[in-house]
Structure formats: structure tokens, C-alpha cells
């Protein structure tokens, strides 16, 4: 009963069950896994209803990915390096950045974009009433399965680039790489979710969320192209230059120091904390639209 009560108070409630018994935590985890499985099932059903459209979106993403690679191809017709980055290193970077973006997109993008719609129509009321963490349902309601297909094509490009570079990473390096990618995804998610919460203040924030797309373009550029204030802003404020550059540097053995790894992990944690804080602040401000 006590637990249920806490769940109802949602936003601020979950995750604060400090010092709770390990078994109760496990039960809770199991419950959330069950809920998430149900959400997955829903998404799969939805996608199978519009098969043609599903395939067309994959074509669109492939085309844009090809375009980025084409651009790199054209650049390297005219130069041998960008800073110290060679052609295949940049291809690896573009691939990794696409991989991170697509996994992010599979889990979070639609949900972040839909938040403003939930607020505008007052549907958020319904989600706030559910006996689960509201941020959990809002963030993970829909899964975009196309994202996984696109991530695998990004992976294929990365493998090819790694072969061109004659990289033979150890299993440990690969896992570390994936862990860093996860940190990158956490950064994208935290920042975009924060942008989406602007819709608590202004009605039409969907456009703002898509404005974030412009930031992905920086994430796939080699960090050495930037200097000064610009580099500082996109490292310490909007850490786009860490998200895919650091994992790729690790993989391609280009790390200058281990500080970069800590910086990426630290920035990911910082973004997550700030984003959660902004979310709680925003929910407190929420007055339903349905009255």
C-alpha cells in the first residue's frame, strides 16, 4: 500500500526508495521490465500495420546516411586529413555517430517529440495518474523499430572502415566502446528531453525538439575541426563533440589521454541530473489543459 501511494505521487516519487530491500528493488525492476515488454509489443503491432511506410522510412534514413558518407568522400578527394583525422577514421566517426543517433531514435525520439502533444491535448493527465514513474512512460512509450535496422547498417559501415584501418580491437575495447556509446545516447536523450519540457511553458515546442536535429550534425564531425569558444560550448555545455568522437577515438586508438573518457562519462551524468531536475520543476508547474 505504502509503495502504491508513493508511485501515485509519480514524478518526484520513483527511484527514491533509498535503502529499500534488494528483493523489493528486484521486484520493482521486474515490474518495469514487464511494462516495457508490453510497450514493445504495442509498437511492433503498430509498425506491422503500416509496413510500406516502415520500409520507406528506412530508405529515407539510408539515403541520408549515404549522403553524409558521400560528403566525406568528396572532401577527401581534395584533402588527405582533417586535423589528424584520415578518411577512414572519419568514416568510422560518421558510422558511429549514425549508430548512436539511430539507437537513440529507436528508444526515445518519437517520445520526446510527442511530449508537447501530450501537454497540449491534456493526455499527460492520464499518464500522471498511472501507478508508474511518469518520466518512464513518457520517455519509452513507443519504440521505433526502424532505428535498429538503420543502426545495423551503420554498424556495417563501421566494420568496413575498421577493416580499412586494420583495427583489431580487443573484446574489452569493444565493450568499452559500447559503454561510451550508451553514455552518448544518455546525453542526447537528456538534452532533448530537456528541450521537450519547454512545452510546459510554450505551447508549440515540437519544432524546437526537431531543432535538436541540427546538433547531430556537429556530433559527426571530427573534434579537431573546432577550436576556441565554439569547441568549449560544444564540449562543456552541449557536449556534442564528445558523444561520438570519444568512443571512436578509443576504438581507433587515437585517445590522447584517458581524461576524455572521464569527461564523456561525467558530462553524461551531469546532463542526466540536470535534465531530471528540469523535468521535476516542469511537472510541478503543469496545469492540465483539459479543464
Amino acid at each position: 500500500m505504502n509503495r502504491k501511494h508513493q508511485d501515485y505521487s509519480t514524478a518526484a516519487g520513483q527511484g527514491q526508495e533509498a535503502g529499500g530491500l534488494a528483493s523489493s528493488r528486484l521486484a520493482k525492476l521486474g515490474r518495469y521490465a514487464g511494462i516495457y515488454a508490453a510497450l514493445w509489443k504495442n509498437s511492433v503491432t503498430r509498425e506491422t500495420m503500416f509496413k510500406g511506410n516502415f520500409l520507406l522510412w528506412i530508405v529515407v534514413e539510408l539515403l541520408w546516411f549515404g549522403l553524409q558518407l558521400g560528403f566525406i568522400g568528396v572532401l577527401y578527394l581534395h584533402t588527405d586529413a582533417i586535423g589528424t583525422w584520415t578518411k577512414w577514421e572519419v568514416v568510422l566517426l560518421v558510422g558511429a555517430s549514425q549508430f548512436i543517433q539511430q539507437i537513440y531514435q529507436a528508444f526515445f525520439l518519437i517520445n520526446c517529440a510527442n511530449l508537447s502533444e501530450l501537454i497540449r491535448t491534456g493526455k499527460l493527465d492520464f499518464l500522471l495518474m498511472l501507478p508508474v514513474n511518469t518520466r518512464f512512460v513518457v520517455s519509452l512509450r513507443q519504440v521505433d523499430l526502424g532505428g535498429f535496422v538503420n543502426a545495423s547498417s551503420a554498424l556495417a559501415v563501421m566494420l568496413y572502415a575498421a577493416r580499412q584501418l586494420q583495427l583489431v580491437p580487443t573484446v574489452g575495447t569493444v565493450f568499452a566502446f559500447l559503454g561510451l556509446c550508451a553514455a552518448g545516447i544518455l546525453i542526447h536523450y537528456s538534452l532533448m528531453f530537456m528541450l521537450a519540457t519547454i512545452s510546459f511553458w510554450t505551447v508549440k515546442a515540437q519544432g524546437i525538439v526537431f531543432g535538436y536535429y541540427n546538433l547531430f550534425q556537429i556530433a559527426r564531425m571530427p573534434d579537431e575541426a573546432f577550436r576556441g569558444m565554439y569547441k568549449a560550448v560544444f564540449t562543456f555545455v552541449l557536449p556534442m563533440l564528445l558523444v561520438s568522437n570519444v568512443p571512436v577515438r578509443l576504438l581507433a586508438d587515437k585517445l590522447e589521454s584517458h581524461g576524455a573518457l572521464l569527461l564523456l562519462l561525467g558530462m553524461a551524468a551531469a546532463c542526466a541530473v540536470v535534465s531530471e531536475w528540469v523535468w521535476r520543476l516542469s511537472v510541478r508547474r503543469y496545469t492540465s489543459a483539459s479543464n
Binding site: 586535423g83 535538436y212 541540427n214 546538433l215 550534425q217 564531425m221 575541426a225 573546432f226 577550436r227
Partner: peptide, 15 residues
Amino acid sequence: FGFIPLTAMLWLWRT
């Protein structure tokens, strides 16, 4: 937001 990719592109060429 729309200006971000443009500025990034200019940096890239400069390098």
C-alpha cells in the same frame, strides 16, 4: 538552431 550546421561547416573547411 538552423545556423549551427552552417557554422560547423565553416570550421570544418577552415581546418
